[in-house]
Design a protein around this nucleic acid. Sequence first.
DNA 1: TTGTATGCGTTATCAT
DNA 2: ATGATAACGCATACAA
Lengths: 344, 344
Amino acid sequence: MVTRKEVAELAHVSEATVSRVFNGLGPMKAATKERVLEAAKVLGYHPNAIAQSFARRRSGNLGVILPYMPKVHLFSAFYFAEILSGIGEQVREQGYDMLLSLLTPDDELDYGRLYRSQKVDACVILGARDTESQRNSLIQLQEQGHSFCLVNQRFEGLSFLEVDADHVEGSYQAVRHLLAEGYQKIAFLNGSPQYSNSLDRLHGYEKAMLEAGLTIEPELMFEGNYSRTSGYEAAAKLWEMRDRVEAIFAANDRMAIGLMQGLRERGWVAGRDFAVIGCDNSDAAKLSDPPLSSIGVPFFEMGKQAARAVLARVGHGAVEHELQVKLPTELIVRQSSRIGKGGV
Amino acid sequence: MVTRKEVAELAHVSEATVSRVFNGLGPMKAATKERVLEAAKVLGYHPNAIAQSFARRRSGNLGVILPYMPKVHLFSAFYFAEILSGIGEQVREQGYDMLLSLLTPDDELDYGRLYRSQKVDACVILGARDTESQRNSLIQLQEQGHSFCLVNQRFEGLSFLEVDADHVEGSYQAVRHLLAEGYQKIAFLNGSPQYSNSLDRLHGYEKAMLEAGLTIEPELMFEGNYSRTSGYEAAAKLWEMRDRVEAIFAANDRMAIGLMQGLRERGWVAGRDFAVIGCDNSDAAKLSDPPLSSIGVPFFEMGKQAARAVLARVGHGAVEHELQVKLPTELIVRQSSRIGKGGV
DNA sequence: TTGTATGCGTTATCAT
DNA sequence: ATGATAACGCATACAA
């Protein structure tokens, strides 16, 4: 390994000067800089990132924490891929690297390990849920002065750095769309209330229904776990009460697709016999038959902003970032909800 | 930050002894160990990972390199999610962390940056293609003595660490299945030959066709780019020659699904009017209508073995790993190919 | 079984 | 504009 020392010798300067050249610090003679750069090139010198981290007392790594579940995909792969790409784009711009950490439920209490070991300067946390234990872990993390930003999850009553999407508005638009298409008996298949976006979607649903002068029928409210299978299972229940249902709003695409599959097996075809809208506008929405109307969520941008926010916080006097940001969602109408019933 | 020194003082031992306790080295009195641990606990001491890396001259990070394409998904998200999880499971077992690096095409010539900066001890490379420039980059990397393992990509004529799946056999089984169902006019929608698995699939297709006494019709061979859209576009061409096609084997699920969508728009329904088999057995295969028969590829296991192989190589005299491993694939039959034409 | 001493490659402070 | 040098927190070879 070629070190700064060798470069300094070859360039006939001190080691400090070599560092200055590579860090662009202080005024210096162009000739000196040239000589150092030349020597470095000849020797093939590259600063040792670990030594730099050690000396600077920061790792240059942004931790990305995600729940780890062997061979299980509670969240769609799409969701993570988008967010990861967004984070990736941002860290690259700031010269950081991404340290990926898959946390099992057992580790949830140990969010702090990465920080304590100094492997990361800050973290972006994906897939968090509002449980007693996670709440406590995050509060503790905050008390210890560690910087983190949550993506797509809010914790009411607590003041964390959060980048979320406007799921209330998205759901509101989805249901408004169904209403405009002439549907009134609209069921709602939600996910676990441990996710703030589930609660948001419920609010959006309720708001649209009430505004339309309709009542919220408890028997039209279902809860799945965001998996295709849970949507498929909900189809059986919906089928039993098909005379009371014209349309369904599902809290994600996977459940919506499972739902369509289950109902199709019984001869009820989405976009013909009933309407469906999902959430996420994932690839699966385009791949399904019929193509699924969905609420688009800017996952890429959310990842990017989360990384930016949390790096700004640890950065050297960088721009201040609002504590909580909420990005807009977007209704994407496809065939699954397009036929309508004649409109209002 | 609490350091080893403070622990040593409180426990009335030397700093070296503290290190020994935390690294489980050498024989030591149980009482001493107890005292050190107690002191560490009282002070809240945690070894500084960066200082450790610095002293050990290894980072403890496994680099994971993936092609980066803003908002584009050439590979399915499923593919990466599975492999990443597999790598994650393995690194966790070995006490390593994953450093994610998204490389743009421009960076392809600079595979070495991560190594030179000492940020990683080894890399797993995903999504590599057999192009002139990538070949050269990898050869150079190898010459510089850097350890890496390729996943799902082989480079003929070169001797790299590679973990692949048996795509030849998978394709062979897929086509055999179609033949057994009574189809003989079997088209093949492949991906770019820059991917070794595309070539493998071609070989499997040819082998099965020739064994069945059939000829390879060049007009039945199509090339897409692994995207749904390219499958959708291929549907138009296939439709033109529908009298000469009974079944289609596609090199991934996304193209197969695009294909089904395109043909359905023309009234040709998969599993009824023609048969289709895809590859990857991704989530999309289960979500599509009809459910898509597919060749399952053990991406999770491939990621895991790749991480294992390359960490063994840099590890302290760990077990030797074969240079090239090839994991078995698996035919998953679903409705898209199930109807058959009455058998052979 | 434990202590001592050296080195790891930078950054950053203080001289000059 | 540049040089000298003290940290930084740990691993490890060698001594005791």
